[in-house]
Design a protein around this nucleic acid. Structure first.
Lengths: 203, 203
DNA sequence: TAACTTAAAAAGTAAGTTGTCACTTTTTAA
DNA sequence: TTAAAAAGTGACAACTTACTTTTTAAGTTA
């Protein structure tokens, strides 16, 4: 008989794996990639430290699985954007606001940790590559869905990449210098730039 | 009598401090911020591990001093650029090539480590802030020296910041995904973008 | 229900971490 | 020349790390 507190081994296993991955992601986001330890993860997950190694042969394996889950969650964000595209009227403005928010969201700030860590950790780098590829593709796909009238232009991808890089570059700068002395409006600046890029795409 | 191998205490102190800082910088650049350990630093500097604490009360102090030296070296790069500005003819092209190279140089890649580490290390963040501020100011100053005819335009700083952010964003992306499938020429793209920004500055 | 298998917890290990401390060597000053 | 100060060393204490091993609990099957 199955009761509420009685679970199959499979359920038990899946549940703790989920808890461990969520704890790892939480650790990554709140404390950074380099401060992920099996001890902290187990404490957050409210599991014993040893239990980690029942499900993941090494810490690397745990982290890799957590990264996969994190990117999955990230991808969902774009699915949502496609499902509920902004109204035609102020599409650009809303898209850029969303882009700013996304690239300064805890999840993506944590991803920058992974990027810089990958510089000196070739194993992490190889693990990261497919997810980054998929992520980049998803961004482009989302952009193409929201701006179908422009997506045929061969310079469309270039425009998207520029905008993404500007936003990402600014987000990372802000990690070390919260308030750069800017005499101009960031959002307005980005809108102007985007407007220009879009205009050249119409040519 | 002063001989070659006889040094004043001041000289001795300065020399080993220099060795320790250089070793710390080297450790940061080649292995990343999070892998700096007093043991490794002392090994690279060919000093005993204990000697570090004769000159720096904590590891943090050592790292902070090393960061200061790293930024000093970075600033020197810009001094050089001002001293030997590119010829007027293909100023933009040469500047952008230099900018690419700089933002993918070991020193600046290491600085990205500091940025992301600062996200979850408020002590590092406060230590970093003044250097980042100075660095940003130096970039702008350098740009203004090389493009004096544009620097009066109120949108000049905005243009510089956009270009810097694009380059930085791309450099960091490349840490995790060496070869993004780009169907366009990166250098050419950046030149086009810069050309546009400069043109709007002339308006 | 009893034997068996899998999962989780608890305890243990070896390697690596920062920082300390007693001591030696070098420089300085009396 | 000798005493004091500063710099440098190497061992080590206290702690944290990833991972292993042993023990207990939970779920499965005969």
């Amino acid at each position: 008989m199955r009761t509420l507190d009685r679970k199959t081994q499979e359920e038990r296993s899946a549940e703790t794996q989920g808890k461990l991955l969520d704890a790892t992601i939480s650790c990554l986001i709140t404390n950074g990639y380099n401060s992920i330890t099996t001890t902290k993860v187990s404490r957050i997950a409210k599991m014993s430290q040893g239990s980690i190694f029942k499900h993941y042969a090494t810490k690397q394996d745990l982290v890799a699985a957590a990264i996969a889950k994190l990117y999955d969650q990230l991808i969902e964000t774009y699915e949502f954007a496609i499902e509920f595209p902004p109204p035609e009227s102020d599409k650009i403005k809303l898209c850029l606001t969303a882009l700013w928010a996304l690239f300064e969201s805890p999840a993506l700030l944590a991803v920058y940790d992974l990027h810089t860590a990958a510089r000196t950790d070739s194993e992490l780098k190889s693990a990261l590559e497919p997810f980054e590829r998929r992520h980049r593709a998803k961004i482009r796909q989302t952009a193409a869905r929201i701006f179908p009238e422009l997506s045929e232009n061969p310079r469309f991808l270039m425009g998207i990449d520029i905008i993404i890089n500007v936003v990402q570059g600014a987000a990372i700068s802000r990690l070390a210098l919260e308030e750069p002395e800017v005499e101009y409006n960031r959002q307005q600046t980005l809108e102007d730039l985007t407007q220009h890029i879009l205009e050249t795409l119409h040519e």
